[in-house]
Design a protein around this nucleic acid. Structure first.
Lengths: 152, 152
DNA sequence: TTCTAATTGAAAATCGTTTTCATCTGGCAG
DNA sequence: CTGCCAGATGAAAACGATTTTCAATTAGAA
């Protein structure tokens, strides 16, 4: 299941939020992109179509969308503040290109077994995980030649 | 293999860095803690033993240690800026208590298979991953009663 | 011991984010 | 269709975290 513009607007309304042209533009910008975007990057993109829009509005809209779980946060590359439309609504993770920022979603992280093991070994009550793969997409990989293994 | 104070100092020297009392104190504070600490938190701890130390020095020392791979960065809880001594020098991950900040290291993330699958399906050249489990340690879990599943 | 490059701390600059407040507007009630 | 008002907006100011600058200090090699 994927979020469409219609579904997103429904979701906003359902929570008592209004649909403004500014919000539409921000949502559009995020939906259109297959990269993770920082608030500043979104602002830049959005300004061309909606010159007067303030960075504050971006922040507020992002906060709202994130609160409703409609966008995902990305941690790659240091910034904890990059966002991405939540494309599959279900549990999923990201594979991120360090070259161009392109993001591929994937499901099936299969960490349940590991989670069980850890819970047993540590007596923790585990309630979530953060998983991202970093790499280079085909294009960036070719462009770069093919050195550099960052492996963590 | 675990980093000892001696080994860390060797490592600094090897890279042309000097061993100053301030640095020793910072390293000590990080080593002693089993929580992930923000720069400000480290500063607070360190000041009691070394009153005049500036927050700047903390930042600089953290930058240096991170650059050498001697400390780990944690992403849990929003802050991208919490650090932790790299306890096993090998590839490992963290299980973090959202209550008290306690961190348990674990090895054997077993993501090689998934990584292979993704590489094949997406033509990405994958060179790393970010994995953290979030939860509550036994103590915090009991204290909190036992509601709230944050599951992502 | 001497000397130099590296390190330190204070202050200022900078960056990203949030708050405040006066103004404006989406969308419901009439 | 019109008026109304809670919610939304934008500018400016406030804020907190991080970085830069610079003069003074110091670790450690010679």
């Amino acid at each position: 299941m994927v979020y469409t513009e219609k579904r997103i607007e429904q979701e906003l309304r359902r929570h008592g939020h209004k649909i403004t042209p500014q919000r539409r533009t921000v949502i559009d910008a995020i939906m259109r992109s297959h990269e993770h975007l920082t608030p500043a990057a979104i602002h830049k993109r959005v300004k061309s179509e909606h010159p007067g829009i303030g960075l504050v509005t971006i922040y507020r809209t992002l906060g709202m969308l994130a609160g409703l779980g409609l966008i995902c946060e990305t941690h790659a590359g240091g910034s904890c503040r990059s966002y991405l439309m939540r494309r599959p609504a279900e549990h999923h993770h990201h594979l991120i290109c360090s070259g161009c920022g392109k993001v591929v979603d994937f499901m099936g992280c299969d960490l349940a077994g590991l989670e069980r093991r850890l819970a047993k070994e540590t007596s923790f009550k585990i309630n979530g995980h953060l998983l991202e793969f970093l790499g280079q997409c085909r294009k960036c990989s070719l462009a770069a030649g093919g050195q550099k293994a960052l492996s963590e």
